[in-house]
């Protein structure tokens, strides 16, 4: 379950009993490995939850922690520590995979802050029309019709070259739109990282809408690419 870590809540180290921050994989006092913290992915790396991340630094920290957690180093350790080295490694891998990807990172951070994104979304606030990119719907539908036609033509014989050209053009267009969305998202990162509560909330809303739009576009680009076989 996701939660924002409250680093003010200390946990006692199982080995030396000195209290430490819950997000720590190793006790800062005695350096012993700790059970997987129930904290967010940012805290695993000792980072504040932010969208603009220093990626080389993140990678460096990932490699450093991976080496420290490597199960080989716990071959002669107690049963608990062996288990924890595996569990902590799994957590670290999940955290790294999520944070290094700009889209996954944005979705993850927004979820931490209560935004409903992706398949988990039960559809309760769908009545908010801004959630559905209405301007795209007609185009999305038409393109899907063309894709279906193309697949059927492929299955029965020669596809119509005009249809092929039209799909290629559509792919270029949607690739471009996808780039635009990504740029718009990045523009919101700074607002979120540095803004006050009001700015953050506005940025969050904008990003949720952008991510919705992006999902349509990326699904389309994927389907067109698959059908064209390019």
């Amino acid at each position: 379950m996701l939660k924002v870590i409250d680093s003010a809540v200390p946990v006692a180290c199982w080995s030396c009993s000195v209290a430490h921050n819950d997000a720590t994989l190793f006790c800062p006092h005695c350096s012993k490995i700790q059970p997987p913290p129930g904290s967010d992915f940012f805290s695993v790396f000792g980072l504040a939850p932010r969208l603009n991340l220093d990626l080389p630094e993140l990678e460096h920290e990932f490699h450093r922690l991976s080496r420290k957690l490597h199960p080989d180093r716990f071959a002669r350790a107690g049963e608990n520590e062996k288990q924890w080295s595996l569990a902590d490694t799994a957590l670290l891998n999940d955290a790294y995979r999520t944070l290094k990807d700009p889209i996954h990172r944005t979705e993850y951070l927004l979820k931490l802050h209560g935004a409903e994104i992706g398949e988990e979304h039960s559809g309760k606030d769908r009545k908010d029309p801004s959630r559905v990119p209405a301007d795209l719907l007609e185009e999305v539908f038409e393109l899907n019709m063309q894709l279906e036609e193309m697949r059927m033509e492929r299955a029965t014989g020669e596809p119509d070259p005009e249809l092929q050209a039209s799909l290629e053009q559509a792919k270029r267009k949607f690739d471009g739109l996808l780039d635009e969305v990504d740029q718009d998202l990045r523009a919101q990162w700074q607002a979120w990282d540095e803004g006050d509560i009001a700015v953050r909330q506005a940025a969050q809303k904008t990003m949720v809408a952008l991510l919705d739009r992006r999902r349509y576009l990326s699904n389309l680009v994927r389907d067109v690419t698959e059908t064209l076989g390019v």
Partner: peptide, 13 residues
């Protein structure tokens, strides 16, 4: 009626 689900990118007419 043409509607879409932003969760998964589905479209339904």
């Amino acid at each position: 009626g043409l509607v879409g689900a932003p969760e998964c990118g589905d479209v339904m007419r």
